[in-house]
């Protein structure tokens, strides 16, 4: 990506992320739904990936999948900030809405797969990548998974399958916030060290700060001779100090007072 177009992406993606953080907080406040911590963890990744995707010509647009379907509010909020969502955000988790608590592909043509059960995105992405390769398309397939999904057998099956099929057009981004449903990942089912595991399987691995938009954009723009895994170190609840690194915010939804505090912090950070 040229310097000029990169700066175009970055100036937009920061705005998108900031707006999406506030939307996701508002959505979980109004719906009393869970998973705000997971949304805040992944919003920077989604903001960069979707902003970049929609600033290039349609033929070279990446396929992007969010496998951690429980961060649906984060995905919907990012797509809404880019005017790519078909439904109004305030219907989130309302009766009769298509914007339910886990990712629904009917919410936007930008969503190739409904998710919610973990470990489904990467195998599906492999199908997309094989297809792009067969069609000799320049499109890349980017799939974002949670680190909790490294507990799933399909992740490791697919970690074998992708190098076997020489899918150098596949980018796996791990949202590495270190927290899964009931506890810290390393106390639940030890994952570390992740990079050498995947390297030994035949992947290139890049470790980045998953909230640094420049690093994210650089990562997804890299050419790789093998499937590329980006381990994006993130903070669950990122951007709202009292939610950061807290297991409770996998479940809690913010009160109106907490929403005000959170908005103030996000506004301050984006100054």
């Amino acid at each position: 990506m040229t310097g000029n177009s990169a700066s175009k992406v970055l100036s937009k993606s920061l705005q998108v992320a900031s707006k999406a953080r506030k939307s996701a907080l508002e959505m979980t406040n109004q719906s009393k739904a869970s998973h705000i911590g997971s949304c805040l963890s992944v919003i920077d990744l989604l903001a960069v990936v979707f902003t970049q995707k929609n600033l290039v010509s349609s033929a070279s647009r990446n396929d992007v999948l969010l496998s951690k379907g429980h961060a649906a509010a984060g995905l919907y909020a990012v797509l809404d900030a880019l005017n790519l969502l078909l439904q109004p955000l305030d219907t989130y988790c309302k009766d009769g809405s298509q914007l339910y608590g886990h990712v629904n592909h009917h919410a936007s043509p930008q969503i190739p797969l409904s998710t919610g059960s973990l470990g489904h995105g990467l195998p599906f992405a492999i199908g997309l990548a094989i297809s792009n390769k067969k069609h000799k398309s320049q499109q890349k397939t980017i799939v974002i998974i949670s680190d909790g999904e490294l507990n799933e057998g399909t992740t490791w099956e697919s970690a074998l399958v992708a190098p076997q099929n020489k899918l150098s057009n596949l980018i796996l981004i791990i949202d590495r916030n270190g927290i899964q449903s009931l506890g810290f990942t390393e106390e639940t089912l030890r994952l570390n060290p992740i990079a050498p595991k995947l390297e030994s399987f035949g992947w290139n691995v890049l470790e980045i700060d998953g909230h640094d938009h420049e690093k994210i954009l650089d990562g997804i723009s890299r050419e790789s001779d093998k499937p590329l895994c980006i381990i994006a170190t993130t903070v669950k609840g990122k951007g709202v100090s009292f939610m950061e690194n807290s297991i409770a915010w996998h479940y809690k939804s913010p009160t109106l007072e907490e929403l005000d505090l959170a908005f103030a912090e996000i506004d301050e950070a984006s100054k």
């Binding site: 470990g119 990467l122 990548a129 094989i130 297809s131 099956e157 399958v161 076997q164």
Partner: peptide, 26 residues
Amino acid sequence: PKQFLNFGINEQSMMGAAAGLASKGF
């Protein structure tokens, strides 16, 4: 050979990937 794929012994990933391929018109 270009229309044949031995995925290995991993039915869950195979089925997910088949869905991905079908979403692209295969």
